[in-house]
Design a binder for these strands. Structure first.
Lengths: 198, 198
DNA sequence: GTCTATATGCAGATAGAC
DNA sequence: GTCTATCTGCATATAGAC
């Protein structure tokens, strides 16, 4: 970027910088324990200045989730482009917890743990967080419709989300990721059986 | 109790009263958002006075968890006494999420949501919370050893915990308990298949 | 746009009268 | 044992100099 930035652009860029800096922080500490001091340190932006870019902590959460949604939808589009069959694509999804197992053992599922935290008495924030699930669920539904036309794609997608959340939850409870591979094999085997029955 | 209580007894009783009063509060609000003001209101004990019975918030958590462990172990002993086969007993366990589905949709799993909250950056509190899982896991292991001697009871118990946590997590995300019965049927069918294969 | 200083409130925890 | 008043610190949020 050689030309001088106009003010609006610079603000947007700094805002984006903050969002990306604290994405991991939100995952590692959770929302309620993530303070403005933490945010300032992680982003390098002075504490009081964060409010120039976001009017409240809630708005920060919304911005990070929006960023995640964007990242996720790019990832899913890439999978759609790269992988030929819905079966392969769904298996790419189940692979997430294998690739991320070390983090899951330490911090849980980034979506599930956030929902668990906000879902009790922060309904507005919970609603924001839930959108992370919607994007995966809709994509899975689409894949199951292709894989098994005529079957209840909504139910199959939900069932798969349940499996993944269950693994993440128990791996986090015990801080032990050694069970991940075996459990994902079971899911993939279930997918193969479903596909073969078609 | 007709005889005058000695001081020690009265203290223990009031302590127990507080614990039982806030068990639900902890479930509904989570640990970090449950304040001493909340605790005082729920128990009817004046705010500053809570410290006469507990020296810190951490000690309150430990006491509530200890109470839950005691309740759980009584419940499991009752199941052992009432139900004749390990298969029936395990199904009694899966029935929990059916009976509690309305609460799960609102507040998540009392054990899983607490672990998700404390597990990120409060390792000491997480360790206290984890004991709730241990008691169920050990009991399930015992049941699977009886049901399927020679098979990996630890793995089977863990797999079942994963299913239950997955259901609770997704039911909480969507605030919709309509999927519980069907998903529990799938688990129970799996148990029947396992038992029949013996 | 950047940053320091500060307002305001509530959290966990304590002191001491009764 | 009971309860009020309060300490201390950090949280979110804001004002205003530069």
């Amino acid at each position: 970027m050689v030309a001088p930035m106009v003010a609006r652009e610079k603000t947007a860029q700094q805002r984006q910088h903050i969002i990306e800096s604290i994405d991991e922080l939100l995952y590692h500490k959770g929302f309620n324990l993530m303070s403005f001091t933490d945010i300032a340190r992680a982003s390098g932006v002075p504490r009081g200045n964060i409010y120039y870019y976001f009017k409240s902590k809630e708005e920060i959460l919304a911005a990070v989730i929006e960023y995640r949604l964007d990242q996720t939808s790019r990832m899913l589009a890439q999978w759609d482009a790269d992988l030929d069959s819905p079966q392969e694509r769904i298996k790419r999804f189940t692979q997430i917890v294998v690739n991320e197992k070390a983090n899951v053992a330490k911090y849980g599922c980034p979506m599930g743990s956030l929902n668990a935290e906000l879902g009790k008495v922060q309904p507005k924030l919970k609603k924001i967080s839930k959108t992370q699930f919607d994007i995966f669920k809709n994509w899975l539904k689409k894949q199951f419709k292709l894989l098994l036309p005529g079957q209840d794609a909504e139910m199959l997608a939900t069932h798969l989300l349940i499996q993944m959340q269950g693994i993440a939850s128990i791996v986090h409870v015990y801080g032990d990721d050694s069970l991940v591979d075996g459990e994902v094999d079971v899911i993939n085997h279930w997918l193969d059986m479903l596909a073969a029955s078609q």
